[in-house]
Amino acid sequence: MFSPQAKAKVLIIEDDRKLAEALKSGIEAAGYDVFSASSAEEGFFLIHSLQPDLLLLDLTLPHRNGLDILRQIRSEGVDVRVLILTSHNTEEDRVEGLNSGADDYLGKPFSFPELVARIRALLRRVLPAVSAGPLKVGDLTLDTRTRTVFRSGVRLELTAREFDLLLYLIENRGRTVSREMLATDVWRETSRFTPIDNVIDVQIARLRKKIDDPYPVKLLQTIRGLGFSLQEPQT
């Protein structure tokens, strides 16, 4: 399909031009070739002419329901990953979307880091094997087998939740992780209306106290309005 050198092609079918523009530049910055269509007809044409690897599909398009497009391309057997973006975000909508042949579903408004993470996950053909060796960021190392964490050679005592949180951050090192992502992937909280953000913030603060506070180089960054990122400081 695509070699590591060639960029994967992403097609956005979204009638809100402002959102489409923002998504285009954001996803391009994440390293993909991005095209956009603002109507179902244009989208169809581009699906067949460009043969994108991934389709970001808005469900409420003028004249035509996004699900129709999805069903049609599935019945034509077009090989493309489909991520639905929609403001209709009830459980039934999600089930219907996935049953119609979508690979993933994201409700509006979504966090951009989460969107990029999902795109990356969908385009990753082979899941990377759980690395045998310890994961590293700077002088922080995490061993999934023994569930131990070291910083500068000193072993850190982390609670189970702190370990899971750090593992998730370290797996996504160098990228931004939103609160929504943490809520679903680390806390496994499906209900969107829970006081979980509060819990996440406190948990991050406690983790930071253990892995960063005693050390001069700070690895865990808070990106205001976006989320958190674990990365080596730029020199």
Binding site: R161, W187, E189, P195, I196, N198, V199, V202, Q203, R206
Partner: peptide, 8 residues
């Protein structure tokens, strides 16, 4: 779930 808030 609220443990950290309680500890805090």
């Amino acid at each position: 779930l609220l443990g950290v808030l309680i500890e805090e």
